[in-house]
């Protein structure tokens, strides 16, 4: 009975609430745990941990800044792809069968993206922390690199959501960020990540500011594309 009351109370609030955010996190943990039963999930976890390991290992190894930059880029790519494989967020027919509005579904997807951002943010930031950059440079990189890059990367697993199995092959990409949008968003994130900043001057700002702009644009675009889609399952 209490459980029923809890569910009922949860439904009456808005789409972006702490309760729903925490519930989405729990959902993500269960989904990741479930993915580990599959070989795909195990490969995803291995790739994610490999990215974390080589990122931190090279950062601690005392290599030159350029090598660290390249390594940061590669390690983040591995971790992100691993995470995307691990948290297989594909929702097929179920999206249409669950008693939720499109906006509610879109909000839940965005909350999942936020959780993924937090994980990727932690991975990148821990590498910066191990680079012995100095306090000021560390915070510069957290602000200019970790935050926008993790927002861009967090959208990647969501961009691969397919409403219908094999819909990509049939040419239906209802919830997909368009190819150009994905290229712009991730391309900008990778470019931004390629150069570690060590000053607050304008040149160091350009890429991060553009990255902030594209990642926020992509997030809003993605949310709107899910929430405002007026397409039924049978029309896909």
């Amino acid at each position: 009975m209490e459980e029923r009351k809890g569910n009922s109370a949860d439904k009456t609030k808005g789409n972006f609430t702490l309760g729903k955010f925490l519930h989405t996190g729990r959902e993500l943990v269960v989904e990741i745990r479930a993915s580990l039963h599959t070989s795909r999930g195990k490969w995803g976890l291995a790739l994610f941990l490999f990215g974390v390991f080589i990122g931190i290992h090279k950062a601690l190894a005392g290599a030159g800044l350029e090598e660290k930059q390249n390594n940061l880029f590669l390690a983040t790519v591995y971790s992100t792809i691993g995470l995307a494989v691990l948290s297989n967020l594909q929702d097929f027919k179920l999206l249409y069968l669950l008693p939720i509005t499109r906006k509610e579904f879109a909000a839940r997807q965005m909350q999942k993206a936020a959780w993924l951002c937090i994980i990727i943010f932690s991975v990148i930031t821990s590498q910066f922390a191990c680079m012995s950059l100095g306090m000021e440079s560390f915070w510069q990189n957290v602000f200019w690199k970790s935050i926008p890059v993790s927002i861009s990367m967090g959208a990647y697993p969501l961009a691969s959501v397919k409403p219908v199995r094999n819909s990509e092959m049939q040419g239906t990409k209802m919830y997909h960020l368009s190819f150009w949008m994905v290229s712009l968003d991730f391309g900008m994130a990778f470019l931004n990540l390629m150069f570690v900043v060590d000053s607050w001057n304008m040149y160091a700002w350009i890429l991060p500011v553009m990255n902030y702009a594209t990642c926020i644009w992509a997030a809003v675009y993605f949310y709107r594309k899910i929430a405002l889609a007026d397409v039924y399952y049978d029309e896909l």
């Binding site: 009975m1 459980e3 029923r4 569910n7 009922s8 949860d10 439904k11 519930h23 959902e27 269960v30 989904e31 745990r33 479930a34 993915s35 039963h37 599959t38 999930g41 297989n88 594909q90 097929f92 027919k93 179920l94 069968l97 669950l98 008693p99 939720i100």
Partner: peptide, 27 residues
């Protein structure tokens, strides 16, 4: 056809999808 995520266990499928229904009881 299988419209649930098949990686999930029976119990976890109940937890995840049940949360979308007001009157759902896991017990």
């Amino acid at each position: 056809d299988d419209y649930f995520r098949l990686d999930l266990s029976v119990k976890h499928a109940g937890i995840i999808y049940g949360a979308y229904y007001e009157r759902y009881s896991q017990a």
